[in-house]
Simulated assay, not measured.
Amino acid sequence: MALHKLGQDPESPEGKSPTLYYDDETDNYLIQGWKVLDPERRSQLDLPDHEDVIEFPKRMMKFFPEVDGG
């Protein structure tokens, strides 16, 4: 498996997150982002025990090849 870093949030104060990766073995994206911890927001989600949710800024959509034409 090879993960390819497609882009990091240019507005990240520490330059670490959020980050978008592509897994060429599974043909899936991996998204590193901010954990959603607010109980009120989480209560509105239908999350199975084996899943979680993160926040990902809209400004990072440009890193998806399907969006940027690459």
Rank of each mutant, 00 (worst) to 15 (best):
M1K: 09
M1Q: 04
A2D: 12
A2N: 12
A2G: 04
L3R: 13
H4F: 15
H4C: 08
H4W: 15
K5M: 14
L6A: 05
L6Y: 12
L6Q: 05
L6I: 11
L6G: 03
L6D: 02
G7I: 05
Q8H: 03
D9E: 08
D9S: 00
P10I: 05
P10L: 14
E11W: 07
E11R: 11
S12W: 09
S12E: 06
S12M: 06
S12T: 08
E14I: 10
E14M: 12
E14N: 09
K16S: 02
S17T: 11
P18R: 01
T19N: 01
T19S: 03
T19I: 12
T19R: 06
T19A: 12
Y21P: 02
Y21F: 15
Y22N: 02
D24K: 11
D24F: 10
D24M: 07
E25T: 13
E25I: 11
E25V: 12
D27Y: 13
D27M: 07
Y29I: 07
Y29F: 15
Y29A: 09
L30P: 00
L30W: 15
I31G: 08
I31Q: 05
I31W: 05
G33E: 03
G33V: 03
G33S: 03
W34K: 10
W34R: 11
W34A: 05
K35L: 12
P39M: 10
P39H: 02
P39N: 10
E40M: 12
R41E: 09
R41C: 03
R41Y: 10
R41F: 10
R42I: 01
S43E: 09
Q44E: 12
Q44C: 05
Q44T: 09
Q44N: 06
L45F: 08
L45P: 00
D46M: 05
D46V: 09
L47H: 00
L47A: 01
L47S: 00
L47C: 02
P48F: 03
P48S: 10
D49H: 01
H50G: 00
H50N: 11
E51T: 07
E51N: 08
E51P: 00
D52I: 06
V53R: 07
I54M: 09
I54K: 08
I54S: 00
E55T: 15
E55V: 02
F56L: 07
P57V: 04
K58C: 07
R59A: 10
M60Q: 01
M61W: 14
M61V: 11
M61S: 11
K62A: 05
K62H: 14
K62C: 09
F63S: 01
F63Q: 01
F63K: 00
F64D: 00
P65V: 06
P65H: 08
E66N: 05
E66M: 14
V67R: 13
V67C: 04
V67F: 14
D68A: 12
G69E: 03
G69C: 03
G70P: 11
G70N: 14
